[in-house]
Design a protein around this nucleic acid. Structure first.
Ligand SMILES: [Mg+2]
Length: 743
DNA sequence: CTACTATTTGATCCA
DNA sequence: CAAATAGTAG
């Protein structure tokens, strides 16, 4: 550790701290060490430390690191996770204070969009008459943008009205919006109904988690009383709501540590705002800053090119960043004929590097970082053809699979009978001859009778209320009995994995897949993988509020009164709640509920395959978007399509952010970096001529030797450098010759 | 009314 | 290339 690293770790816990540093400077490691330092040196109880990471996967990685430093027990007590998952946890814990039911379901983006699509339909003619094309995607987007700024429908109206009309047009008012701004009018109307739908469904979308979280922590001080120190990683990519949340959680002790790098802010499109760095200094005037300037990750030539790229951002505040590593091979810029040749090159080059490195590099040392996922298609097939094992990183893809969503929907419905998206999905799946018309009848009557759709169907089934036109009673018999069976098991706190098995059995789901899907084998495997995920999740469940052991408190004079008080308040509150309604903490956190929450928020879906050869399974080339590569590093990074139209993306509105994204991609590399382009590429159905991104051409204008068209040479010198950068042993020369021959 | 097939459309990045 | 939509048979 350098002097400044140490200063950052050991900085006084009572003085708010910003650790600002470039890529590869060990920011996250410093943050992790600081947590350990707070616990060991300052005797702060782990349960009064809140650590916020950017993804839940990052939280898991931090947990692994901390387990080594402070042990499993202490690590499990930390309040750790993304802002979203922290909100979800505390909202369930204090559902009554937040005005929620503790069994609320998290509505993911896909389901949100489906709801919005339904709500948009009645406006179809209205829009067509005005020649406006408005798809549910853009409506969902606008609604989410508003929510992530804390705005409601009326605020959207207010904002639209504020815009001065163009010359000659009528000034907009809330009343005439329908005529003066029909698009916004429709968005706002859908927005209103969307909120009502979620409310009726006892459901929160991702934005709601933050909104309700801010409200909860902001209005009930006791909810955040436990927090003696909050630490936030990747702070440059927090949005306004998240920042507010941080200040509320820190309200009692004002002890905050953040790490971040403005140059790596790549989520402004999701309303992240780097000015939160300034806001923090405004709101915590005692804030001090520490800069880390040592890069431990990359060779000098990778760093030089990266810095040349980011330096083209004229708004940027200059930062120094240097590496102790040698220069190393100059990054390669190659132009291939088309995307097929590009993919082919990637596959053969990976094979070549594994050989010439004498096995120092294995598959998992390679990452292919793309601007968007669609670019992966050709590359995946090329890797398959060369039988190079690979995996697609990031995203939520697994949980978006049809078969996985089917199962999740049943479980959601079991946990929360009001959750309409799940009801709609399950009621006729597997097919029960309950079509569109029947469903809309059910929904309408349920709304009129002010009960949930599932409730209504259950009552019809029990013969307590009259049936609908095409009789439903007999069609839903198995549906209802399935739901009831699983529901009873769930109440007995049966594990999610067991619930899924029962469900599959009752639904005859395997048969259903065989009948309806030709690739049912793959899909059935995914279902099995969901069970794996459930059992894995069950093992690693961290209890939401582990009671502090008595002994720990007594040994811990600094972990003082306030903390004890904080817990006392929460505990009392729980007891009061128990009296008022039967939703105890225990009931609020059934295994099923924890599993569902993890499924909706998790990005960590690399389920380990079976018992055999775990190491082998992990050794795979990584395909990832640049966004999901945030915070990670690989010995070799290949960036395909470093072309104008991709970097910056043709539809992007923020050129500087696109540049930062390329910067982030380049700085993931430790020892080798490739920027690839093609002569022409299929873009939106047509072949188009491509050229090298101006982010690169401008960066190398003054210094052409920042990049080369040559492949990195397989010299001993280069192997030594690589071994040094990666801290790996140098392979024997014989090994290299052997592998080259095999190739 | 529902189930199934054929066609058209329209595609950044994410918790 | 997937999902929404239209159209047809049962
Ligand atoms: Mg980091």
């Amino acid at each position: 550790m350098t002097h400044s690293d140490e200063a950052a770790v050991q900085h006084s816990p009572h003085v708010p701290l910003q650790i600002l540093a470039g890529p590869g400077s060990g920011k996250t490691k410093v943050l992790t060490s600081r947590i350990a330092y707070l616990i060991i040196q300052h005797r702060i109880a782990p349960s009064s430390i809140c650590a916020v990471t950017f993804t839940n996967k990052a939280a898991n990685e931090m947990r692994v690191r901390l387990t080594k430093l402070i042990g499993k027990e202490a690590t499990s007590r930390l309040r750790m996770g993304t802002f979203h998952s922290l909100c979800a946890r505390f909202l369930r814990m204090h559902a009554n204070l937040a005005g929620l039911e503790s069994n609320f379901t998290i509505c993911d983006a896909q389901e949100s969009q489906k709801i919005i699509a339904k709500l948009l339909k009645p406006f179809k003619n209205f829009l067509e008459d005005r020649n406006i094309s408005l798809r549910e995607g853009s409506v969902a987007w606008r609604i989410s943008q508003a929510k992530s700024k804390g705005q409601g429908p009326d605020d959207v109206v207010a904002e639209a009205v504020k815009e001065k009309g163009m010359n000659g047009t009528i000034q907009k008012t809330p009343e005439n919006l329908k005529d003066t701004d029909p698009t916004t009018y429709v968005i706002v109307e859908v927005f209103r109904e969307y909120r009502i739908t979620l409310l009726r469904s006892n459901s929160l979308d991702f934005d709601d988690l933050l909104l309700y979280g801010v409200k909860l922590f902001g209005t009930h001080k006791k909810v955040s009383m436990w927090c003696k120190h909050i630490l936030v990683d990747e702070f440059q990519d927090t949005n306004t709501m998240q920042y507010e949340l941080m200040t509320h959680i820190a309200a009692e002790h004002h002890c905050v540590t953040i790490v971040g790098d403005p140059d790596q802010s790549i989520y402004a499109w999701r309303s992240a705002d780097v000015t939160n760095l300034k806001n923090m200094i405004r709101d915590f005037p005692a804030t001090e800053q520490i800069f880390l300037e040592q890069n431990y990750r990359s060779t000098a030539s990778i760093l030089s090119l990266s810095l040349a790229i980011i330096s083209e951002d004229k708004e940027r505040i200059k930062k120094s960043l240097h590496t102790a590593h040698p220069k190393g091979p100059v990054p390669t810029q190659l132009c291939l004929v088309d995307e097929m040749k590009e993919a082919e090159f990637i596959a053969t080059e990976i094979k070549r590097l594994v050989a010439v490195s004498g096995g120092m590099l294995t598959w998992s040392d390679f990452a292919i970082l793309m601007r968007f996922t669609a670019l992966s298609r050709e590359i995946e097939t090329a890797l398959q053809r060369e039988s190079i094992p690979h995996k697609v990183l990031g995203g939520h893809k697994f949980f978006e699979r049809m078969e996985v969503k089917d199962i999740l929907a049943y479980l959601q419905l079991v946990d929360n009978g009001s959750f309409l998206p799940a009801f709609n999905r399950c009621i006729n799946n597997p097919p029960r001859s309950i079509g569109e018309k029947s469903v809309s009848q059910i929904l309408q009557r349920a709304e009129k009778d002010k009960i949930s759709a599932l409730d209504l169907v259950e009552r019809i089934h029990d013969g307590k209320v009259p049936d609908i036109k095409p009789p439903l009673k007999r069609k839903v018999a198995t549906f209802i009995s399935t739901i009831r069976t699983v529901r009873n098991l769930a109440k007995k706190r049966v594990s999610a994995a067991a619930l899924i098995r029962t469900l599959l059995d009752l639904l005859n789901y395997e048969e259903h897949l065989k009948k309806t899907q030709d690739d049912w084998q793959n899909r059935w495997e995914n279902v099995q993988e969901l069970i794996n995920f459930a059992s894995k999740e069950h093992e690693t469940i961290e209890l939401p509020v582990p009671p502090e052991p008595k002994a720990g408190k007594e040994n811990d004079p600094v972990a003082s009164q306030l903390e004890a008080d904080g817990f006392a308040v929460i505990d009392n509150n729980q007891k009061k709640k128990e009296a008022a309604e039967p939703s105890t903490d225990q009931a609020a956190e059934t295994p099923l509920r924890l599993f569902l929450q993890a499924s909706m928020l998790s990005t960590d879906t690399e389920t380990k395959d079976k018992e055999d050869g775990e190491e082998k399974n992990k050794d795979k080339v990584v395909l990832s978007t640049c966004h999901s590569a945030k915070g990670l590093e690989w010995p070799v990074v290949i960036v395909p399509a470093t072309e104008n139209g991709v970097f910056p993306h043709i539809r992007s509105e923020d050129e500087a952010e696109e540049r930062r994204l390329l910067y982030v991609a380049c700085t993931r590399a430790q020892s080798l970096l490739y920027l690839l382009t093609t002569v022409e590429r299929m873009v939106g159905g047509a072949r188009k001529a491509r050229d090298l991104s101006f982010f690169v051409t401008r960066a190398i204008k003054a210094k052409r030797d920042l990049i080369t068209a040559m492949l990195p040479e397989a010299t001993l010198e280069n192997r030594k450098i690589m071994a040094g950068v990666l801290s790996r042993p140098l392979p024997p020369e014989a090994e290299i010759e052997k592998r080259l021959e095999e190739l």
